[in-house]
């Protein structure tokens, strides 16, 4: 058993630099947004003394939230640009082929793999179909939702006449009822993303160990490697 395996499996270049940079900045932005967002809803213990101008605790929390939010937004825009101009892996999470029956049968296959019913998953160069679906719903749409509600909330501060207010606040507030509702749903969106992150990280680690291809290292090097040469 101690004989080292010789890896002759092919490797494919999947994630270009844009995508990798995007991924890790998003990860960073979401981390900052999550922490600061939580603190905006439940601020830390009151700063007890001194003049208000000596402190800027809540101000910094919000400032970092907004900075991270803009990083996330710009990253998201870059990602959409890559989806348009980049290779097909760049497009995947935006357009899962839900119209194909084969897609759904493969989703079913993955579900069975996760349910520990079947011993082996299929190999994928990009995302597996279940991951694709999860990315599409839990990441893409939640992020869009968070960007829209977030800009709407931001527009309340920048005020009438600013682009944030004109393009977002002015219609988002009435749509939800009032500002408080937008806050609440934005906050709920944060928890959705936290659930996504938990799932994403867990599954990435698990797949890295148990699936037939590389996962975490691919997002660092860009190369997808496989652990066997068998076809699906």
């Amino acid at each position: 058993m101690s004989v080292a395996k010789i890896h002759t499996e092919e490797a494919i270049y999947v994630y270009g630099p844009w995508i990798r940079i995007w991924h890790w900045t998003q990860a960073f932005a979401i981390l900052v947004l999550g922490v600061t967002g939580y603190l905006i809803g439940a601020p830390p213990e009151s700063v007890s003394s001194g003049e208000a101008s000596d402190h800027f605790q809540m101000g910094y929390i919000r400032y970092f939230h907004f900075c991270a939010a803009y990083i996330l937004i710009i990253g998201f825009v870059v990602r959409i640009w890559r989806a348009i101009v980049g290779n097909r892996h760049n497009r995947e999470i935006f357009l899962p082929p839900v119209w194909r029956t084969s897609f759904w049968s493969e989703v079913w296959h993955e579900i069975k793999w996760y349910a520990l019913v079947i011993p082996e998953p299929k190999k994928y160069v990009g995302h597996n179909p279940l991951a694709l679906l999860a990315m599409h719903i839990m990441y893409v749409w939640t992020t869009i939702f968070m960007i829209i509600t977030g800009l709407s909330l931001y527009g309340e501060g920048t005020g009438m006449g600013t682009w944030q207010h004109t393009f977002f606040t002015s219609w988002v507030n009435p749509l939800f009822g009032q500002s408080q509702d937008v806050h609440t749903w934005h906050h709920l969106g944060m928890w959705m993303l936290i659930c996504f992150v938990i799932t994403h990280v867990y599954v990435a680690v698990r797949e890295d160990i148990m699936s037939r291809q590389s996962i975490i290292s691919s997002m660092i090097s860009g190369w997808r490697t496989f652990k066997d040469n068998r076809s699906n």
Partner: peptide, 28 residues
């Protein structure tokens, strides 16, 4: 409130992941 719902969801998801990890390890 959102934090109650969110924490519950996160705990469920986290718990499910932990259980699943355990089950996966045993299976493996």
């Amino acid at each position: 409130d959102a934090d109650e719902i969110g924490t519950t969801a996160a705990v469920i998801v986290g718990g499910a992941a932990a259980i699943h990890a355990g089950a996966s390890a045993v299976k493996r």
